[in-house]
Computed example of a mutant assay.
Amino acid sequence: METGIVGATGYGGVELFRLLSGHSEVKNIHLYSSSQAGEFFEEIYTHVNNQSHELQPLQPEKMKQELDIIFLATPPGVSSELTPKLTGGKAKVIDLSGDLRLKDPQTYTDWYNNAAAPQSVIEEAVYGLPEWNKENIQSASVIANPGCYPTATLLGLGPVIEKQIADPGRIIIDAKSGVSGAGKNASPVTHFAHTQENFRIYKVNQHKHIPEIEQQLNLWNEASKPVTFSTHLVPMTRGIMSTIYVEPVADDSLESIHELYQQTYESHPFVRVRKLGDFPSTRDVYGSNYCDIGLALDDRTGRLTIVAVIDNLMKGAASQAVQNMNLVSGIEETTGLKHVPVFP
């Protein structure tokens, strides 16, 4: 396959490059940048200096006819304008930004403070959560790759919300991320002196991933209501832990709920449901496409605690995008993604 990465110099872009470089079905990787065209990728990221890739300017008409897959690893507001120029040709488009995830344009504008993509493109885009939308992804021409927080949270919530085992109106999500989730560009928030030996909450009740989570929950259960979603910055490079609290609506035992999770994900190779009493940490999925899930039921409060962990740059971005590429291209889903997590 001929693949292209727009926004190749960001963290998501360089992870895509790493994964595609070892993918058996990828023939060539073309790298594009609107701000650094003409520079060599290896001069920006010296850890890939055994190859030679010049960053190219965007040429949408040429790209959509010559490439099989185009990844958009761009900031919000870019792909909403670029995707319409890349559709209608040979290429399938996989957007890693949030521009195409929300089906209501006004909701997107309210949360992202950007103009929404054309309605026709929004309707064409398929939400790329493979474990829950595989058939639609396989026939898609445009895929909206899920956000990092929503990926962990929705994989954790899916079984109990879709089967109506938990109250969809009383969901609390306590999520934490490493600093790479803020992107490559430096800011006071990600400055070493501000993050080292510090733990902070941010975007309280205002995180742009909230409507994405709520949109999918509503598809699973129309009785869903707004969630309480809190995000925290952890002084580590990568990883997400989403700790979720829900209230079961019946007297289901922890064993029966655990069995539901095992049955739901038994045919999905990248979700690992842990044994009861065993809870995942972010290190358990570091550098991999896995999502690990642990469960606990509090006899005193009756609440179910769901813990889901992912690598935000992998299952939360680049490797999930490659997983979607495999599905939309008719390739075995796990191709190029059978990485054992990095340890230590």
Rank of each mutant, 00 (worst) to 15 (best):
I213M: 05
A182Q: 14
V126G: 04
V121R: 06
E197C: 01
K176G: 10
Y202S: 13
I122P: 02
N185E: 14
G178L: 12
N136S: 01
A117D: 06
I172K: 00
S141Q: 15
Q196W: 02
A166E: 04
N198M: 05
G183D: 10
Y127V: 00
G183K: 12
R200C: 12
P159R: 05
P188I: 03
K184S: 14
E162A: 10
P211R: 04
P118V: 07
Y202W: 12
N221C: 03
W132H: 08
I122N: 01
Y127L: 02
Y127F: 05
A186G: 13
E212A: 03
R170W: 00
G156W: 04
N114H: 14
V142H: 01
P168I: 00
S139D: 10
G156A: 01
I172R: 00
Q196Y: 04
P188R: 01
D174W: 04
L154K: 06
I137A: 03
E212L: 02
G169M: 01
N205D: 05
K184Y: 15
I210H: 05
L157G: 03
E123I: 06
H209D: 15
E124W: 07
P159D: 02
N221A: 00
S177L: 15
N145A: 06
I171H: 04
I143P: 01
K163M: 10
E214V: 03
H194V: 10
G158M: 07
N205M: 08
A182G: 12
Q196C: 03
A115T: 09
H207Y: 13
V189H: 10
Q216H: 00
R200S: 11
K184T: 15
T195M: 13
V142N: 09
T195G: 14
E123D: 15
E197W: 09
E212M: 06
A125Q: 03
I172T: 05
I201D: 04
H191T: 12
T151P: 10
V204Q: 11
T195H: 12
P146C: 02
N198T: 14
G128F: 07
H194I: 09
A186N: 10
V204F: 10
E135T: 13
K163Q: 13
K184I: 15
H191F: 13
T190Q: 11
D174A: 06
Q216A: 01
P168K: 02
P188H: 00
E212D: 11
V189R: 06
A116N: 14
Q119M: 12
I213R: 09
F192Q: 06
